[in-house]
Design a protein around this nucleic acid. Structure first.
Length: 387
RNA sequence: GGGGGAGUAUCCAAGCGGUCAACGGAUGGCGCCUGUAAAGCGUCCGGCUCAGCCUUCGCAGGUUCGAAUCCUGCCUCCCCCA
């Protein structure tokens, strides 16, 4: 029991989960995820990890893919209405979500349900569901109170969200529902809906929200401060190294389920964290390679093992074989030629590690052939004249 | 149904006839420092083979030598009253 509530923020109602566990029967443990973005990131895994713990303790995990609720928009933690993904996006996301969730969960022992299965209900049934609450109950949540105070809009659809999520609990007869702390209102609301439908109310357990790589805001795709579970090892490692020191303990606890190493200097600890994360979602060999890659780029300031090649020939002019660098860099790094000029001017462009003089705009093809062109610290292309 | 307000670059947000590629902030890029942390300093941040030119301020027209700024229509959004 102590294990199962580790790191949890709220376990409500007080004592209920303990009683449920003491009763001995496996619990039906629910988690709903709305497929609003294509990928699962470390923030999602905090709750998934907890779900896995219940799974390992022999409980029945029910993963709900919110293909229907994704079209409604969960107002939790939102200060504004979110843009709605298209049905096609939702469908595509739903597929990748499941795949990625099984990087944490045991596929064989997970019941996966799509909530469109029961939420595509008859209008009469929907009215029945709506009859279970009042507007006052729906807007009492903090998210809405803030928006009301600020004169910001609240979409009617958002108002309905908790009812639908609550109905999910009815549909799968959940004994326990997990979620982030921002889900507290919705989770508790589900209890009332279950009661209204003559079921026993679930208990709820909330997990902390993982802070993003910026160390300030919650990890989220739209804020661009996330680490995706399917990202390449090098990316994962690099992004983790950028996490501010203060956030490290949190990452150790919530992502790796451990404790921050006591006596390691900060940069060693962070390396351990980065290795741990890559190992968790890839493997030990990948972690090793990712760290070497990191060392080469940022400690030795060198080029990575494998550098993508770029054919130099199309950029050389017919006459003297001069290459216009802004155009070349624009193509090589998918930036504008103006940006390339800026990089050169500010000493951010290098050839084989040598800074290109800031007033250079053209170079002979022969001076470029076979060398590694670099923009900033992390973008590389090996130039190769062919044909 | 009535009244009021807003749409400016990645985001926030100034500008309200020329000096506007458009103040300021945030985010971000690059460089120095360094542990790709934090703090700090400098610099850049529409595009273009760039001392110049081109395209931008919801959309479409119009007025004017000249419009992000004025006029007309349209679209979208928000607030208040009912």
């Amino acid at each position: 029991m102590a294990d199962l509530t580790r790191n949890a923020v709220d376990v409500l109602p007080a004592g209920m989960l303990q009683e449920q566990l003491d009763a001995g029967a496996p619990l039906r443990v629910k988690l709903g995820i709305d497929p609003t973005t294509p990928d699962i990131h470390l923030g999602h895994t905090v709750v998934l990890e907890k779900l896995r713990e219940f799974q390992q303790a022999g409980h029945q995990v029910v993963l709900i893919v919110g293909d229907f609720t994704a079209r409604v928009g969960d107002p939790s933690g939102r200060s504004a209405q979110r843009p709605m993904p298209s049905p096609e996006e939702i469908e595509a996301n739903a597929a990748t979500y499941q795949e990625q969730a099984f990087k944490v969960l045991d596929r064989e022992r997970t019941e996966v349900r799509f909530n469109s299965e029961w939420l595509r209900m008859e209008p009469e049934e929907l009215l029945g569901l709506l009859a279970q609450t009042t507007v006052a109950r729906l807007i009492e949540r903090d998210d809405f109170q803030k928006r009301l105070a600020a004169g910001a809009p609240i979409a009617a659809l958002e108002l309905l969200y908790p009812l639908l999520q609550g109905y999910d609990s009815v549909a799968v007869e959940a004994d326990l529902e997990l979620g982030g702390t921002d889900q507290k209102f919705n989770l508790l609301f589900g209890r009332d809906i279950q009661t209204a439908y003559g079921q026993k109310s679930q208990s709820i357990l909330t997990m902390p929200i993982l802070v993003g790589t910026d160390g300030a805001k919650k990890m989220s795709k739209s804020l661009g401060n996330y680490i995706g579970v399917t990202e390449a090892p090098e990316e994962m490692f690099g992004k983790t190294m950028r996490v501010p020191d203060e956030a490290m303990p949190e990452y150790f606890r919530l992502v790796l389920g451990g404790e921050p190493p006591a006596s390691l200097p900060p940069n060693e600890a962070k390396r351990a964290l980065a290795r741990g994360i890559v190992e968790r979602f890839h493997n030990a060999a990948a972690a090793e390679a990712a760290e070497q890659h990191f060392n080469r780029l940022f400690v030795e300031r060198g080029a990575p093992d494998e550098v993508e090649e770029l054919n130099l020939s199309p950029f050389a002019d017919d006459g003297g074989g001069e290459v216009h660098l802004p155009a070349l860099m624009a193509a090589a790094f998918d930036i504008s030629s103006s940006e390339a000029r800026r990089l050169i001017k500010q000493g951010g462009a290098k050839l084989d590690g040598e800074t290109i003089p800031s007033d250079t705009l053209d170079l002979a093809q022969s001076a470029l052939d076979g060398r590694v062109l670099q923009a900033g610290k992390r973008r590389f292309r090996r130039l190769q004249a062919t044909g």
